[in-house]
């Protein structure tokens, strides 16, 4: 209880302090986190979306079952999801250095972020497509639609609200990952939290960054739900 009171006091006393001394750092941290999250989400979807679509299309109940390809994809996705991100960060370093030229900074951090997010996103997309009403797909087949047409004009259309919620979920997960990326030179809010809160014993700064991260996640969550709800014509 005593420690807690000290924390609150410390917070209120140094709030002014933080505003003047650390505001630049915090703004930069927020921008870095946003940059890493946004870039990683977009590029990871560029790869994860087709992989997820392929996984569902080639599945047993899919529109074009291909058991061998499906098993291989499933294996890759599962392995990808099993590697703890913080280990992936370090293991990927040589690759990052090859692509970006360095392992330091938000740009370099996006490499492991993207690689770590792709399997997760593929799973999300696959699930969004899997839960679709198979009847609509059957109706499209009965009209002579090709596989490609079914994917683009039926599946992705009907699953869009669900996919958008998936985007929301994966970007929030990535926000969490950026904090870990911070530990190996990534920068961002998470990095500040660890550096100041853990290494420098300045819990006030850490708490501010935590609050900022919570607000960021809330905003992403709300936007995701809002957009998903707005475009969903099934549940008006």
């Amino acid at each position: 209880m005593d420690n807690f009171m000290k924390l609150i006091n410390g917070l209120s006393n140094t709030l002014n302090d933080i505003m003047t001394n650390y505001s630049d750092m915090l703004v930069q941290g927020m921008l870095d986190t946003l940059y890493m999250t946004l870039v990683a989400t977009i590029i990871a979807y560029l790869f994860g979306l087709p992989i997820g679509i392929l996984a569902e299309v080639t599945s047993k109940d899919g529109i074009h079952p291909m058991p061998v390809i499906n098993k291989v994809l499933g294996f890759i996705i599962n392995v990808g999801r099993s590697i703890p991100f913080i280990i992936l960060l370090v293991a990927i370093m040589p690759f990052t250095r090859m692509v970006i030229g360095t392992t330091i900074g938000p740009k370099a951090a996006t490499v492991p972020l993207i690689i770590g997010a792709i399997p997760f996103i593929a799973r999300l997309v696959e699930n969004s497509l899997k839960e679709l009403d198979k009847g609509v797909i059957e109706a499209a087949r009965s009209m002579g639609a090709s596989d490609m047409q079914i994917v683009f004009k039926v599946m992705l259309v009907e699953a869009l609200p669900s996919i958008i919620l998936g985007v929301s979920l994966s970007s929030i997960t990535l926000v969490g990952y950026t904090a870990m990326a911070g530990t190996v030179g990534g920068r961002g809010l998470g990095d500040i939290a660890i550096r100041y809160g853990y290494y420098r014993y300045q819990p006030d700064v850490m708490i501010i960054t935590i609050i900022l991260l919570v607000i960021l996640v809330q905003i992403i969550q709300s936007i995701g739900q809002l957009i998903s709800k707005k475009i969903d014509k099934k549940n008006t």
Binding site: D133, G135, V136, E138, A139, S142, M143, G144, V154, V157, E158, L160, P161, I231, D232, K233, K234
Partner: peptide, 15 residues
């Protein structure tokens, strides 16, 4: 394209 089909569950595109 020359055979139409309708279903018990209608199967319309809800979106």
């Amino acid at each position: 394209k020359n055979i139409g089909m309708i279903f018990q569950g209608f199967n319309l595109l809800m979106q």
